[in-house]
C-alpha cells in the first residue's frame, strides 16, 4: 500500500486504504515522541515551510514539532494579510517559495481552496492545515486515530458532531473520513449553523442535541467563533450554551464510555461544561498528542524521496 498522491488537501480524495495506511503509520510514530531523544534522522536535510495565513498556535506548533522530530528544518511564514493586499497573487507567492527549494509546504488559509491553488502550481507536496470552512484533513486524521486507538475500530460507531457545522472545516473533514470508515455520523446545531444539503454527505441532521447524542460512542463539540454572533447566525452565546453545550445532563444518554472530543481551543462553558472537559471521558489532550504522530506520518509519507 502506498499513498498515490503528491498532496494531502482533503479527506474527500483519500481512499479507505490510504486512511488506514496513514493511521497505522501514525500509530507507529507515537513511540518516537515518548523517547528521551525524540528525534529520528528520517528527514534530515529536508526543508519544510509552514505558511500560515491565519493565526493558529496549536496546528502550527504540532506541524513544527512533527517536522523537527523527523529532523527536518522548518521555516515558518506568517501572513496576517492575503497576498491580494500585498499586490501579489497567491500563485506568485507559491512560485516565490518554490524558488527557495523547499521539500514540502504546509499551508493554512482562511480562504477555502487556497492550498489547492498552490498545490496545483507546485511540484512539491502540499499539506492542507485547514482552508476556510472547507477541510482540515490532519485534524480529522488525528480524530480518527484517537477514536480508533481507544475504541479499536471506527466502523459501526455512532459519532455526534455538535455545533457550527456551516463554518467548520473540522466537521467536513470528519464527515468525509468517518463515513468512509463506516461510522454513522450525526450532526446537531441550530438550523442557522447547518448548511443546506449537508445530508447528501451521508449524515443524519438533528436540531436537538439530545437526539444526536443518544447512544453515541463519540461526541465531538466544535468551536464556536464568538464573532459569528454579529452575523446573526445565533442570538447569543448564552442561548447557544443553554441548548447546545455538552454537559453532565445531556451526555447521560450517550454510551457510558462515550469519548468527548473537541478540536480546541475549547470555550469552556459554551461548547462543553468545564467538568465534562476534564472528565475521564474527555480525550481532548490525547487528540493533541496524536496530532503530532499523524503529522509525522504525513510528513514521512510525503516528504523526501524521489517518488
Amino acid at each position: 500500500m502506498k499513498l498515490h498522491r503528491k498532496d494531502i488537501l482533503g479527506i474527500k480524495e483519500l481512499s479507505v486504504d490510504e486512511i488506514n495506511l496513514i493511521l497505522e503509520t501514525a500509530d507507529s510514530f507515537v513511540e518516537v515522541s515518548t523517547r528521551e531523544i525524540k528525534k529520528v534522522p528520517t528527514l534530515r536535510g529536508k526543508t519544510i515551510i509552514t505558511l500560515f495565513y491565519e493565526p493558529s498556535t496549536r496546528t502550527r506548533t504540532s506541524f513544527e514539532i512533527a517536522a523537527k522530530r523527523l529532523s527536518a528544518d522548518t521555516i515558518s511564514i506568517s501572513s496576517s494579510t492575503s497576498s491580494v493586499v500585498k499586490g501579489e497573487t497567491l500563485i506568485d507567492t507559491a512560485k516565490n517559495l518554490e524558488s527557495m527549494n523547499p521539500d514540502l509546504i504546509v499551508i493554512r488559509h482562511s480562504a477555502a481552496g487556497a492550498p489547492h491553488m498552490i498545490a496545483g502550481v507546485l511540484n512539491e507536496p502540499v499539506i492542507n492545515a485547514g482552508d476556510g470552512a472547507h477541510e482540515h484533513p490532519t485534524q480529522a486524521l488525528l480524530d480518527m486515530m484517537t477514536i480508533r486507538s481507544i475504541k479499536g475500530k471506527l466502523a459501526g460507531l455512532k459519532v455526534a458532531i455538535v455545533g457550527d457545522i456551516s463554518h467548520s472545516r473540522v466537521a467536513r473533514s470528519n464527515i468525509y473520513g468517518l463515513t468512509k470508515m463506516g461510522a454513522s455520523v450525526h450532526l446537531a446545531g441550530p438550523a442557522t449553523m447547518i448548511p443546506y444539503g449537508i445530508e447528501n454527505m451521508g449524515v443524519v441532521v438533528h436540531t436537538q442535541i439530545e437526539e444526536a447524542i443518544r447512544d453515541a460512542d463519540v461526541v465531538m463539540a466544535l468551536r464556536i467563533q464568538t464573532e459569528r454572533e454579529k452575523q446573526c447566525i445565533f442570538p447569543s452565546l448564552r442561548e447557544y450554551a443553554r441548548h447546545f453545550s455538552l454537559n453532565r445532563r445531556n451526555i447521560g444518554s450517550a454510551a457510558k464510555d462515550v469519548l468527548i472530543m473537541h478540536p480546541g481551543p475549547v470555550n469552556r462553558g459554551i461548547e462543553i461544561s468545564p467538568d465534562l472537559a476534564e472528565s475521564a471521558n474527555s480525550v481532548i489532550l490525547q487528540q493533541v498528542t496524536n496530532g503530532v504522530a499523524v503529522r509525522m506520518a504525513l510528513l514521512y509519507l510525503l516528504a523526501g524521496g524521489n517518488a
Binding site: 477555502a112 481552496g113 476556510g132 472547507h134 472545516r169 448548511p195 443546506y196 444539503g197 447528501n200 452575523q231
Partner: peptide, 18 residues
C-alpha cells in the same frame, strides 16, 4: 453578503459562503 458562489450542496461541501 459574504457569498462567493451559489448556496447549495457544492457550497455545503466546499465550505465556500453561499
Amino acid at each position: 453578503a459574504g457569498g462567493t458562489m451559489h448556496e447549495g450542496f457544492v457550497s455545503a461541501e466546499t465550505g465556500l459562503v453561499g
